[in-house]
Structure formats: C-alpha cells, structure tokens
Design a protein around this nucleic acid. Structure first.
Length: 406
DNA sequence: TCTATTGCTGTCTTAAGCCG
DNA sequence: CGGCTTAAGACAGCAATAGA
C-alpha cells in the first residue's frame, strides 16, 4: 500500500452531506482500514458499512467487500447500521397478528412495518447475540445494549454453583428438584444485576426470558407446581427487581432517584400522591457523564456547541458535540423538567430533524429514520414528548415507535 | 437479612354512551 | 357509522413492612 499513489474519494455521509476524502497514501488495502479512515476523517459515531458506486451499473451501489473495487475519484457511501429493534416482547404478537389479520389495531401495523423492514429480524437477532453479551470488564451503568435474544445467565457465587452442580446431578439421576432456599438470594441478586445492565424496569415478557434461560441452564431449578415451571421464578424476580431498585435508589443511582417519591414530594404524606407514572413514549434515561468529563467541562462543551451552531452547519462537529453532551442534557431535561423554550435556547442544535432522530437513537438505541425509511414525522408531539419531557422509563421500543408513527 | 405482601396512586386499555 | 368523552378495571411502581 505504501507505493500506491494518492487518491481522492467522494464520500456520501448523508443525503445532503457529501464530502471529499483525501488519501495521501492511496486507497488502503483492506475495507476495515478504509472504514477506520472514514470514521476518523468525518468523526462518525456508531457502526457503519461502506457501499461503492459501480460503474458497470450506473447509479447502483454495492457493498464494498474489497478496496480493489474502488479507484481514485470513485464514490462511496456510508451506510449506518441500525440494529433491529428488540422484538423479544412482540414476536408472539407478530405471529398472532399474522394469523388473525382482522384485528387491525395499531400495534399490528407497527409489527408488520417492522417485519417489512427487517424480514430476517429473527435470524439477525440471533446472530447478534454473541457480540451483545456484556463483557465483565466494562462498566455497565450505561444502557448501550439492547435486550438480548437469549439472556446470558450469569455465573453465580462459587458455593451457589457447587449446590447447583450437585442439584443438577441429582436431577439428572432421579429427577429430584433442588431445594434452593439457601442459594436463592445469590441467584436473585446476580440475575437482578445482569438484568439491570439492560433495563431498570423489565417487562413481564423480559422477566420470562430470564427465567426461561435460567431454567434451561439449571433444570433442577424448575418448579413443577407452577406454570411452565417458571411462574414462581418470574414472580420472585419481579419482587427482586423492585427491591433491587429500592436498594440502588438508596445508594443514589440517579436514574432511579429521579423516580423516588421523597424526591418528588418530600412533604406529601400519601406514598404515591402526585407521582407521575411511566407513560408510553417517555423516558428518563440518565446516563453518566463520559469518562473524564465533569458538569463544568460539559457546560464548556455546550458553549462551544452554541458557537458552532451560530457559525454555520458543520453537521459532524455538531453531532459529535451533541453526542458528548448527551448525559448533561438528559440531566437537565429529566431532573429539572426544563421547559421546551429553555431547551431551545440552551440546545438549539437539538431542534433539527436529524438531531431529533439522533437524540431518539441515543435514548432508545433505535434509529427511527432508518427503521421507518424516514416516513415519520420527527416533529410529532409524541416524538417531542419523548425527547424533551421528563418521563420515567423507556417502555418497550416497539410501543414507543408505534406511538410515534401513529 | 432478604423475600414477599400491602396500601396508595398514576397510566393504559376497553367498552359504553353520546352526538353529529 | 365514526369520532369523542367517560368510567371501570387491570396493571405497574414506590414505600413501608410483614414474615421467614
């Protein structure tokens, strides 16, 4: 690659954002090299692949599998990869709605559009699961991972695993159910921890996923008395998540603290008086600040962002700064319930179709424009309420999208 | 200590009633 | 008939606490 001559490429970043890329060392030998150059040069965030315009087919684009397909002054296109929305909750609904198409309620239309867009959604999900299992080295306060198709049952404490191993033997040999009283706290705690990596407020369907995975890995935990052998565990987990949230709330977890009744109405006597409950399409995702950043440094970043917006539209720069300041913006909006007018004044860059979509993606990890081929109104009240309001939790992705589309 | 329960309340869904 | 409003019931979350 060192002896190749300098090259230039035309790079389509977005529909109306087309750039020139100088490659003084020529076109790199591998696609991944080129991808990282593109990523660095334009400050791209998230996963993407490259397409190239093939001269033989006029305006048609093809996946770039080898850099030998492109030459100097060719056009390449950045295609952002959107992971399919989590459908764990709704696969059965999809099936049933296909079976009974007469029931044309809103969710049905949402599901069918999802399956239209992701016809191979189940296979791509199962393909993703390997890479989505969280690595233990990462700090996991940030919800960057969507709910897995197969819940990874964590490794329990050593003594718990010993009891389980013995229980498994006995179960295999004589079909004896394990008395798990002594190891129950450890099991619930570890499961709760793992669940919390993904969601703070798991739905019943998600809890069922967890239990199914647990029972599959440790059949001796199955309870023949309850439905599927799962119901009891699901209830336990539900209680546990409640208790676990209470524990974290007490320790000052911001995402949960914002929902605490005391914080909202310290002087009210009735426990749940005047408390806003979770509503569809509302979130209070409160990610921690990026490593090494403080409120002051991020405020500085916000001021630079204001300048940048005044100067002109450097979309990539703005996008980068908007991404960087996401945590502090959420803090403002969720914790202080900042009026929209104030948000407009402090974060003018947010009031742009592309940024609304970006912000939505940051909150939910779903790219609406890609998912629905930009057919939806990003300025709909529902979208606005999602991005700007003080809400409580991310309800399941599909429902959010559903309410936005309608 | 930790799981499970209860009381209180907000939100959502559904069905009934009303009206043009 | 279709759109809108209203009421009832289901459900969910927090806090306090009963129970093992």
């Amino acid at each position: 690659a060192s002896k190749s001559c300098p090259a230039k490429l035309r790079v389509i970043l977005q529909e109306h954002d087309i750039r020139k890329l100088d490659l003084p060392n020529g076109i790199p030998g591998t696609v991944s090299e080129l991808e990282s150059i593109v990523k660095r040069a334009f400050g791209l965030i998230g996963n993407f692949i490259l397409h190239y315009k093939d001269a033989d087919f006029g305006e048609e684009y093809f996946s770039l599998t080898s850099t030998s397909d492109i030459k100097d002054k060719d056009t390449i296109k950045v295609i952002h990869i959107v992971e399919p929305p989590t459908l764990t909750l709704t696969f059965t609904d999809v099936e049933s709605s296909i079976r009974s198409p007469s029931k044309s309620c809103i969710p049905t239309s949402v599901h069918s559009s999802l399956t239209d867009v992701y016809p191979s959604v189940s296979s791509s999900c199962s393909g993703l699961q390997d890479t989505l299992i969280c690595s233990s080295s990462e700090h996991k306060t940030q919800r960057s991972q969507r709910w897995p198709t197969e819940f990874p049952v964590p490794r329990f404490a050593y003594d718990t695993e010993l009891v389980l191993a013995a229980g498994s033997e006995a179960f295999k040999k004589d079909g004896i159910q394990l008395n798990f009283t002594s190891i129950l706290p450890d099991i619930l705690e570890k499961l709760a921890e793992t669940i919390f990596n993904y969601v703070a407020y798991p739905t019943s369907a998600q809890l069922s996923d967890v239990v199914e995975a647990l029972i599959q890995k440790h059949p001796c935990l199955k309870e023949p008395g309850s439905y599927n052998g799962c119901y009891g565990w699901r209830q336990r987990l539900k209680y546990k998540m409640g208790n676990y949230r209470a524990k974290l709330r007490g320790l000052g977890c911001p995402e949960l603290d914002v929902n605490s009744i005391k914080k909202k109405r310290a002087h009210e006597k009735a426990p749940a008086k005047n408390i806003k409950k979770p509503r569809k399409a509302e979130v209070n995702f409160l990610p921690p600040h990026p490593q090494g950043e403080t409120e002051e440094s991020l405020e500085q970043e916000r001021l630079e962002l204001l300048d940048e917006v005044k100067k002109g539209m450097n979309y990539l720069m703005i996008n980068e700064k908007m991404a960087k300041t996401f945590s502090i913006r959420r803090q403002e909006i969720v914790s202080q319930a900042t009026p929209v007018n104030d948000v407009k004044y402090r974060w003018p860059a947010l009031f742009d179709t592309a940024q609304i979509n970006e912000e939505f993606r940051r909150i939910t990890t779903v790219n609406l424009e890609e998912t629905f081929m930009a057919k939806l109104d990003l300025y709909s009240p529902k979208m606005m309420s999602l991005v700007f309001s003080k809400g409580r939790r991310v309800t399941d992705d599909v429902m959010i999208i559903g309410s936005c589309v309608t």
